[in-house]
Design a binder for these strands. Sequence first.
DNA 1: CGGGACCCGGAGAGCGCTCTCCCGCCCATG
DNA 2: CATGGGCGGGAGAGCGCTCTCCGGGTCCCG
Lengths: 350, 350
Amino acid sequence: MTSSRPAGPRQPTLEDVARSAGVSRATVSRVVNGTRNVDPEIQRIVQEAVAATGYVPNRAARTLVTRRTDSVALVFSVPAHRTADDPFLGQVFSDPFFGRVVGGLLTVLRPRGVHPVLMLADSEDARHTLVANLRQEHIDGVALVSIAPGDSLPFLLTEAGLPTVLFARPSTPIPISYVDVAQQAGARLAAERLLARGCRRITTVAGPFDSPAGQDRLAGFRAAMAEHGHAYVPSVEGSFTQVGGERAMRELLERYPDTDGVFVANDLMAQGALLVLRDQGRRVPEDVAVIGFDDSSAALASRPLLTTIRQPVEDMAAEMARLLMALIDDPSQQTRSVIFKTSLVERDSA
Amino acid sequence: MTSSRPAGPRQPTLEDVARSAGVSRATVSRVVNGTRNVDPEIQRIVQEAVAATGYVPNRAARTLVTRRTDSVALVFSVPAHRTADDPFLGQVFSDPFFGRVVGGLLTVLRPRGVHPVLMLADSEDARHTLVANLRQEHIDGVALVSIAPGDSLPFLLTEAGLPTVLFARPSTPIPISYVDVAQQAGARLAAERLLARGCRRITTVAGPFDSPAGQDRLAGFRAAMAEHGHAYVPSVEGSFTQVGGERAMRELLERYPDTDGVFVANDLMAQGALLVLRDQGRRVPEDVAVIGFDDSSAALASRPLLTTIRQPVEDMAAEMARLLMALIDDPSQQTRSVIFKTSLVERDSA
DNA sequence: CGGGACCCGGAGAGCGCTCTCCCGCCCATG
DNA sequence: CATGGGCGGGAGAGCGCTCTCCGGGTCCCG
């Protein structure tokens, strides 16, 4: 902490504007915030003074008294391991999903003048620091995207009394608002599509069993298949990454070589699955039909173009922001969940 | 602005801790901040009082007097058009590049307890609001990633006297610190690789001519080719997107059907190029060798695996953060630029 | 043994803002 | 014409923290 600060002509304050306009500080404040009726003429004078002085309200001072920061935390809670190969948390952030969430949030936050502060919780330690941080009244609320199985953060945050909204259902049931997608119904769409195509020896690459999304998609898929007389659907677990998808697909083909239809629990894995199928000389969709989940950019980057279950991530993130703002405005309000519908995006792979 | 705030037992303040420890506010402050020598015994007592009361310093109050916010803006400045198809700014944020920058920044910012606030400048209007915002002393400095051609923001920010560091050279020369990669040298690596493979009818898919990166890569590639006797290299301009790469590659093949080697100015476009080549029955690398630029996740998602020029985005972002912190500590310091080396990542496409 | 240098704790003045009170004015009403 | 109420403006008390200044104690040196 060196000397710093240009020490130049310091920023104009309310006081300066008040003096320049010949009114009191309170009046200027009222005009700036539109807080109460102020004589139109005086309003004009004040506004001119604001323009003339180049006044911008100081956020810290305002926050100190209002206890509002007009910023929210955007927290990504992820499992701890960060390997030597990946010291930069690339796994988290290089997933396009991350950016889609940000994009969706901003559509709601920006018009309200609320800023998202990016935070990462990648260890138990980090989670506690984070809660402490938030308790500094640095932030009005938290939008939490948790990819860590059995994450303690949702609990810690509610316990600390911080307005919080989750992206996706918490892995253990606690009273907290969240947005999610109808996972099971989405998986059902996939099942029906494969069956409608005439696939009969259907398998699935499931997501991690310890993630709610992984569980739900598998359960929904199996339930739908069962309704159509397929009592058992062979599955292999994958890690939601492209490499994981490749590995799982290879295993699946080894164990069930006559597979003619695969539901892959997310697009990234499906992308990997397509590569493996091609390497092994299987035509998609003629020999094996493939359906992904998410409708992420990976779906368009793969060949054949991936038929997939669309998850409206941006809309969900936007709704998450809306829920959060409402919760901040009235912290006593009941927890709510908003579940979005999925849809089948028909492309070339199934 | 409703009533809000739980109104519960309010957060403990310095005063509370001081009373509980039987010392003055100043002493507690000194202990908390490690500002000056304090008697070890008193230190212990204060620390216990802090723990007992659950004290967390209030950031706004601190900021108000220190004029330090310990947060920086991470600004993405992008061209205005946002189509009806893409109301969510997906183009910007679904690019994995975005996340890599964030990841790199965090490695430096986090240990220092500095938080990045995400901002988006996607119109001239937004840029001005942004500058006003920053003038609220809401933020200590700006890390700016500009993808908008002829962006005014670098200028506006320096003019406003805000500590700013750019990711990539500004399109018009202004005195501002930045990190970048040796674009031309990178392109040279690509040229040498293609030549070494024995390619003789070499073409290139260039980036947008109005972006410094696009210009530099093309110029560097041409210069290197010229040194090896290839006076002219046919090129087609692409938009740095996968679709843009497909279009450009198609055009290239039409105009120069005997192409046997292509340098594509980024991986996303290269991914598209590979798809087109495959559709047209050209084997890669046997018939046509392809080299990309970036070493992004797209390079691993494509088949054959993409040989590419590695750009250490995370390292660059981390260095950007370091430069920014230094600039914040001493705003009078000279502007600096740090240029990173590229390297050839040999995979299967060339 | 006296005096200066140094060390450590306390007092108190703000940082820039909001917001509650209060007061004076004007108008409507009896 | 007296009175009550409503409206619009000002005064001033903090919000929680840092930091300068000050004073008392201790130690070292001449």
